[in-house]
Design a protein around this nucleic acid. Sequence first.
DNA 1: GTATATGCAAAGGTTTTGCACAGCC
DNA 2: GGCTGTGCAAAACCTTTGCATATAC
Lengths: 146, 146
Amino acid sequence: MSEQLAEGVIELLRQRGLRMTPQRRVIVSEIMRTQGHISPTALARRVQGELPGVNASTIYRTLSVLEEAGVLAHAHLEGGAEYHRAEDAGHVHLACSRCGAEDDLSLDEADALQQLIEQHHGFLPDLTHFAISGLCAECRRELSAG
Amino acid sequence: MSEQLAEGVIELLRQRGLRMTPQRRVIVSEIMRTQGHISPTALARRVQGELPGVNASTIYRTLSVLEEAGVLAHAHLEGGAEYHRAEDAGHVHLACSRCGAEDDLSLDEADALQQLIEQHHGFLPDLTHFAISGLCAECRRELSAG
DNA sequence: GTATATGCAAAGGTTTTGCACAGCC
DNA sequence: GGCTGTGCAAAACCTTTGCATATAC
């Protein structure tokens, strides 16, 4: 399935007049097979594992290209910026500041939050762009118990 | 008023056995008079304007000390980490990705959001830790008009 | 006097950029 | 063949750290 995703992206880049190099192929295929988010550094490691010698600057430049093409988007998590597939939008990220656990809000929940913010400010939030930090249920229990 | 805040902080640091140097005095006074958030770099500029020669590492170390003492907290905005007074908690930050405008949710609104998230996951969010990105009302209008 | 805070310099990490060369179309 | 993409190296940031010195208490 991610193979097909990668194919589609390659097609789209072609249509935009962009060139498909071996590096781009590997980068696209890696990031399209990634569930959720990945940092540029982590992506670089994976890509270099598959095609040694790919330079970090190529990773960054390709990520920009893909973001401009609407294929990717980035979000801010505790550790910095991470990239995810644009079609994976709606993933509102919950990150536990104590144990690092990660969870996502459902689309319905995200909608409810969005409407709440929208009503009071006319502000249209993109809740996917920043994570939501806090304490997961388990850590809350442990803290109140201990 | 911010003078009194700074006094209180200095008192608190004293009680903790921390020393009050001229550098710390200026840093504390600058950050206590700051409404909202400020980046370490921006703070450094201000402090150095008032007391030339203060090293950046002193700024960072003092920010850490103040955060550990519970006086400050940091939040993640588009441009990176920024510090704000801990008592200014509850400031949920709305940042327009188009024009850069900034706004805050009211405490009631923040509570409503928090409860919504809490109900569905047992996750206790700290909505102040990351900003909420999106489009402000004005930019939405301009975009739909243009 | 002693423990702590500072300045300085260096290192660390991530991301960007200029440039010559390679390679896609 | 021409233009785009890549690697390399350097730079630009931001932040941290080790160490000698200065200084608050």
